[in-house]
């Protein structure tokens, strides 16, 4: 049997961490874009699109991420489509992230005073112009702290993709444990790495929130 030094373990885990980071970024950016699209549907004028966005959110928030991963991975397989783990993981996480971001952002849009809509309407702006120039700039500001805060959930959410065989940090932990029989060291390190990823995010969310609450609150 090959002997694994502490540094071997750490090196292997860090290599896998790249995939966790990449998957998180893909999920967060893709989810952000999809979420923005859904947001426009959710608060737009068209009833059909509003309903679609609402049911989308309810569906994805009302089922475990794990089931969504299984469905993306095995479900499409039933139709003869061979989905690689990375694709299923990416797609499922993007859709899941979008469902939460759209609700966070909708709350921020609704926090904008009704008077802002009326004033901009009375100046002749159309719905899209009101959104683009008046409401979103204000809503996105207050959305920054909860959005950054939610990114922590995305990072932790990537751990579930190990179950469909995507080799990210958690999966690497299992693999390395099986090779070294040092579960405590390995999973301890895995936890520390997750913490190192998540803690700066949640901390900066807190700091941003405090910053936005003091001094010039509005610009």
């Amino acid at each position: 049997m090959i002997e694994f030094s502490f540094w071997d373990i750490l090196r292997n885990l860090l290599l896998a961490t790249r995939w966790t980071v990449l998957l998180s970024l893909v999920a967060f950016i893709g989810g952000g874009l999809a979420g923005m699209l859904l947001l426009f549907m959710r608060i737009g004028r068209r009833r059909a699109l509003r309903l679609f966005a609402r049911y989308y959110v309810e569906l994805f928030q009302g089922t475990p991420l794990l089931m969504q991963l299984f469905l993306a991975f095995f479900g499409l397989g039933l139709f003869g489509i061979n989905v690689p783990a990375w694709l299923a993981a990416g797609v499922a996480l993007i859709l899941w992230t979008a469902a939460f971001l759209v609700e966070i952002w909708r709350g921020c849009v609704e926090a904008i005073n009704k008077g802002q809509w009326e004033a901009s309407a009375s100046l002749g702006m159309g719905h899209i112009q009101q959104m683009r120039y008046v409401v979103l700039p204000q809503a996105l500001r207050i959305a920054i702290p909860p959005t950054v805060g939610f990114s922590v959930q995305v990072v932790k959410g990537t751990a579930l993709t190990s179950i469909i065989g995507f080799v990210e940090l958690s999966k690497a932990g299992t693999v390395v444990t099986n090779a070294t029989f040092q579960p405590f060291t390995v999973y301890g390190l895995v936890a520390l790495i997750y913490f190192a990823l998540c803690w700066p995010l949640s901390k900066s969310s807190q700091i941003l929130e405090r910053k936005l609450n003091v001094a010039h609150r509005n610009h």
Binding site: G115, Q116, A119, N218, H219
Partner: peptide
């Protein structure tokens, strides 16, 4: 044009 009781200026501008 319309002027409102609560001014409704755009606070980010």
């Amino acid at each position: 044009g319309m002027i409102f009781q609560q001014f409704n200026l755009f606070p980010h501008l």
